[in-house]
């Protein structure tokens, strides 16, 4: 079974984020890393391919400047290869444009199953996976907390407000997984060494037959018009606990009449 995992390489979340004051795009400086949210999809893909008795896990990603450092992390976990779309004209691409690029790249891998996170940790738009499914003419099941493949179909436990639904869909299908569904493995030393020589196919949008006018800032049909500081919430009273701070909490709750 061939599985594609959509992965995003993002700026280190530990570094303070910023928007470029001119272009209003997210500033991406320094080495990009694998989005933590994507580690669950990679792990799930490896387990499912294993359970199906073989098949390849292919990563698909879009990033500026041929960036592969995040992809190497996922390759070190055990993915076989990666397709990276990197093209200067992609700067400023909106979520739908991103979906068009990724859908075209995914098609080349002819997957039985496409996995993605429910949303990325930096942009957190959360619509790209479903847009990809629609562009590829495939069904999708979002917010999966359990995924099982049986023969030619997938069985998913999908998070709902009240609990969860059991959902079945024929393959090929796109599934988005919530965090915490599986325990992502740590890359072994052997895995890290092997990842260095695993194939990463780097494509331009011309390779995918996509017109530059459809993507990037020119293709984006939404724009950020302004960014301003929001009203600051004043910080309040600070109490250092010396064994009785709980009494201050109770007093505070009484004042608010929740007790």
């Amino acid at each position: 079974m061939n599985v594609v995992v959509c992965v995003k390489q993002i700026p280190d979340p530990a570094a303070p984020p910023a928007l470029d004051p001119g272009t209003k795009n997210l500033v991406r400086v320094g080495k990009l890393i694998l989005d933590d949210s994507d580690a669950y999809g990679v792990e799930m893909a490896l387990q499912l391919a294993d359970a199906a008795g073989g098949g390849e896990v292919t990563l698909v990603s879009m990033a500026p400047n041929g960036e592969t450092s995040g992809l190497r992390t996922a390759l070190a976990m055990g993915a076989a290869k990666a397709i990276l779309v990197s093209d200067d004209s992609l700067a400023g691409t909106d979520a739908l444009g991103t979906a068009k690029v990724l859908a075209a790249a995914i098609k080349r891998a002819e997957p039985d199953l496409i996995l993605a996170a429910t949303e990325s940790s930096d942009g957190y738009t959360g619509t790209t996976p479903v847009q990809i499914a629609e562009l590829l003419g495939l069904p999708s099941v979002t917010f999966a907390k359990k995924v099982e493949i049986t023969g030619n179909s997938v069985k998913v436990e999908r998070q709902t407000e009240a609990g969860y639904d059991e959902v079945e869909s024929p393959l090929p299908v796109l599934v988005t997984v919530t965090a915490g569904v599986v325990e992502p493995r740590y890359p072994s030393f052997k895995g890290i060494m092997a990842a260095k020589s695993k194939p990463v196919e780097t494509l331009t949008i011309a390779d995918l037959g996509i017109d530059a006018g459809q993507v990037g800032a020119t293709g984006a049909r939404q724009e950020i018009t302004d960014v301003s500081a929001s009203e600051e919430r004043a910080s309040g009273e600070i109490v250092v606990d010396e064994g009785d701070a709980y009494q201050r909490v109770i007093q505070f709750l009484e004042q608010l009449k929740v007790l």
Binding site: L96, A99, G126, V130, E134, S140, T142, R158, E161, R221
Partner: peptide, 22 residues
């Protein structure tokens, strides 16, 4: 919501209009 996001994403790709989220 879970379903609201799915419907918006599908519709966006179907009518080729972007969607603003959050």
């Amino acid at each position: 919501t879970y379903d609201g996001r799915d419907i918006a994403g599908r519709l966006s790709a179907k009518i080729d209009r972007p969607v603003l989220t959050n």
